[in-house]
Simulated scan of single mutants.
Amino acid sequence: MSIEAKLESLGVTLPDAPAPAANYVPFVQVGDMVYVSGQISNDENGLILGKLGENMDVEAGAAAARRCAINLLAQVKAACGGDLDRLVRVVKLTGFVNSTADFTAQPQVINGASDFMVEALGDAGRHSRSAVSAAALPLGVAVEIEGFFQIK
């Protein structure tokens, strides 16, 4: 089954790859690696705002992380000239969680992205990962995730 067909079976339609918001590129390809700039939590309704441990719970944070993962795949699709089946594997995700100083469930929040990658891509979605706290994120979003991907 193609990656796009698998996404469709999950009820996921990739958005157009978001344009960068400042002086950087959305992804860089070096050899068979694609390095995708941080994707902030947003969906069809706009930005997903919040601070974990203050006004957002882990479940909502994980949903925001899942949206970041969807945006990451949209960037990979763009990097692959529209052919997402060129994706070989997810290599690493680095997740930043807008959270209070005493919030310690960053890994559970970023699981929203990790679980989605495995659900959508199977073993090719298994990756190394970091999940860290941030005192604030751009525009007040709840989560930002960057990713490294191998393509063919």
Rank of each mutant, 00 (worst) to 15 (best):
R129Y: 03
Q75D: 10
F149N: 10
Q106W: 05
V143T: 12
P20Y: 11
M56I: 07
I40P: 01
A21G: 12
K51T: 05
P18H: 07
A105Q: 12
P15Q: 14
D115L: 12
N98T: 00
T94C: 08
Q75N: 11
M33H: 04
D16W: 12
T104V: 15
H127I: 03
H127A: 06
L84K: 03
S2H: 04
D32W: 07
A105R: 14
D43Q: 12
D123E: 15
A131E: 07
G112S: 06
N98Q: 03
V25I: 13
G125M: 05
M1V: 09
N45A: 13
A64G: 09
K6E: 09
V118K: 13
A134S: 08
E59V: 14
V118W: 12
V97D: 00
D83V: 15
V25C: 13
G95H: 00
S114D: 12
T100K: 10
A120G: 11
L87P: 00
D43L: 11
A79P: 02
D16E: 14
D85I: 02
I3S: 04
T104K: 08
G125Q: 06
A21F: 13
E144F: 05
Q39H: 04
S37R: 10
G82T: 09
A17F: 04
T100Q: 05
M1I: 08
G11K: 01
C68E: 00
L139V: 13
E8Y: 14
F27K: 02
G38F: 01
A113I: 05
N23F: 07
D32I: 04
A101W: 12
A60D: 15
S9V: 10
V25Q: 14
G95S: 05
V12T: 10
P18E: 09
L10A: 08
L47D: 10
